[in-house]
Each structure stands twice: as structure tokens, then as C-alpha cells.
Amino acid sequence: MARRCFFSFHYQDVIDFRANVVRNHNITKDDNGGFFDASIWETAKRQGDVALKRLINGGLGNTSATVVLIGSNTYSRRWVQYEIMKSVERGNIVIGIHINGIRDRFSNVHSQGPNPFDYLGLHISADGCTGTPMIWSGQAWVAYGDLGAFSIPQQPAEKRGNLFQLSHWLPTYDWVADRGFDNFANWIA
């Protein structure tokens, strides 16, 4: 089944062309997949957080997969974090793809950036039916301020009352090492 994808990324990776390699490969080249023109993004930023959330929520509409393009600083970007958490709340398939192995506009490659799924988590309720978003502050797990608790598929007894990093559930791949051009469709299937 074909999936409509939302692409989440740090804008610097568009400037460096890495994000575009994935976004424009043969499967997604006819779909903007959640990419917003910079002028639309800047207008929403001037209108405030509510406008940005509305823009992101609208971009996620009618999607079934969210693809997080992981560069050097993606993990720390507030709106990437929101896109990930909102995608989990929606029930989208969510995957991460490391893109630092793709040559940038200067033909440079970089080591993998931190996995954003390691910095975001869900605290599972006692009944296993609610997830409360959490974020790593650098010293402790704290409540995630941009999204409240939401319903999740009931979790088994051993997970209830515990916090799990999103990396517990969400896979990551490397575009170059894992041959993303050939395998992308399988990753989001």
C-alpha cells in the first residue's frame, strides 16, 4: 500500500541538500510530503506557536507515515520534536533516517547525529491506555510542554507505569549504509 509521508527535518539539512536527496528520491518526488515553503513557515512563526502547530497539524493531515530525517542537530529542534510527538499521537508509522552520510553541497559527509527518539519518551499510564509525552532535559525526564497525554493502544502489564524512550518503539535507518534508495518503501510499509 502506498503511504503519504510527512518529512520532518532541521531546515539546515535542506540548505545542505541532504534532506532533498531523500525527499526527492523516486518514491516521493511528486509529493511535498510535509515540506513547507520557507515563506509560509516564516509567516506562521511571526503569528506564534499556535499558528506553527496549526501548520504542522495540517501538514500531517492525510498522512500515514512520518519520516524524520536525522542530521547533526535534528534531535534538539523544538518543532521536529513536536512533529514526532504529534505523529505518535496520530498513530502514524514513524521512522528515522540518518542522512549525514549523504554528501552535502560541498561534498562533505559527517558522523551520525544523535537519534531524536532517544530524547523523547512516553510515560505509560497504570492502565496501559494513555501515554504522557516526556522529554530529556539534559539532566532528567520532564513533561513535554507542547502536547498533553493521549490515548495509545493498550500496553502489556510490564510496560504500565513506566517511561520508555521513543527509540524503544521507533526504528532508525541510515540512508547510505542501509541503501535507502532501494529500501525506503519497505521501511514505511
Results as ranks from 00 to 15, higher is better:
I95Q: 08
F35S: 07
S137K: 03
Y173W: 14
V21F: 15
R18Y: 02
G148E: 02
A140H: 02
P116G: 08
Q154V: 15
P156M: 03
V176L: 13
N26C: 01
S76Y: 00
N24K: 09
K86I: 11
E83K: 12
L163V: 07
A2T: 13
T66A: 14
D146T: 09
A38C: 05
H10A: 10
N183T: 03
D37L: 07
A44V: 06
G34W: 11
G59L: 03
C129M: 04
R18D: 01
F35K: 10
A149K: 09
P156H: 03
M134P: 09
R78N: 03
N92A: 05
H10D: 15
G71Q: 11
Y82R: 00
S8K: 13
D178L: 00
Q81M: 12
K159H: 15
S72G: 12
V22F: 03
T66Y: 04
P114E: 15
F164R: 10
V50D: 13
Q47D: 13
S151G: 10
K29I: 04
W175C: 01
I84E: 07
S111W: 01
R46M: 11
N62D: 07
I99Y: 03
T132K: 13
W175V: 07
M1V: 02
G128A: 01
V80G: 14
L52H: 01
N108C: 12
H110W: 13
S72F: 00
N162D: 07
G161T: 11
Q12V: 12
G101N: 09
D104Y: 00
G61N: 03
G121C: 06
C5T: 08
R103W: 00
A189E: 05
G61K: 13
K29R: 11
V109W: 07
F181L: 03
G58A: 13
D49Q: 13
G34K: 12
Y11R: 14
M85D: 08
L69T: 08
